[in-house]
Amino acid sequence: MVSKIWGYFILIGIVYGLMTGNVTAINETILASTKTALELLFQIFPVVALWLGIAEITTQSGLLEKLSHHLTKVLGPLFPEIPKGHISLSYIASNIIANVFGLGSAATPFGLKAMSSLQEINPEKEKASSSMITFTTINTSGVTIIPTTIIALRILYKSVDPTKTVISTLLATFLATLAGLLLDYIYRRWRHHE
């Protein structure tokens, strides 16, 4: 599906650009994109390297399991395929905790660790497992309790109440996550009966 969308984005973009005489802009975009991607990698890479190191310490010392213990109990029923006590659930919990506290930089490495440990117990290596999909569904629907970027931006623009949207964001995130999980559950049941 991603593969098709990827192709259509490019085809539609170029055809529309040709039709509207916007080719120069697209020409620049194609070349500039390579630089943008590298810049983005340079932005993510050092932080990932740092957090993967720190994450390994929390794993080896047993702190990761200890801290995520309570959350893994809550999360367990959402991931029935993960064997009891498997480390992937602790990484998933850590990713959620980091997101909740607005520590976006720590969330990505923990998320990537969660994916690679889920891949270990995935029977079909080229196909996403149900656990992976449930995890990315939770992850992409926000799970932010403190939207730090937005608050910082609102302070920058001299808002009279920078945290005014915290409650509305929390409610909307909750509904979005719930909806995503609901659809995920339906897909799981549906595939199950096939």
Partner: peptide, 30 residues
Amino acid sequence: FYVIALYYGSIGIKNIRYALKTSLFADFIG
């Protein structure tokens, strides 16, 4: 799109099944 590409790409998954649908649905409801 970015998260899906990054997370599934990092472990070499080619078939993401319904992953994009559940996530986009969550965005839409959000």
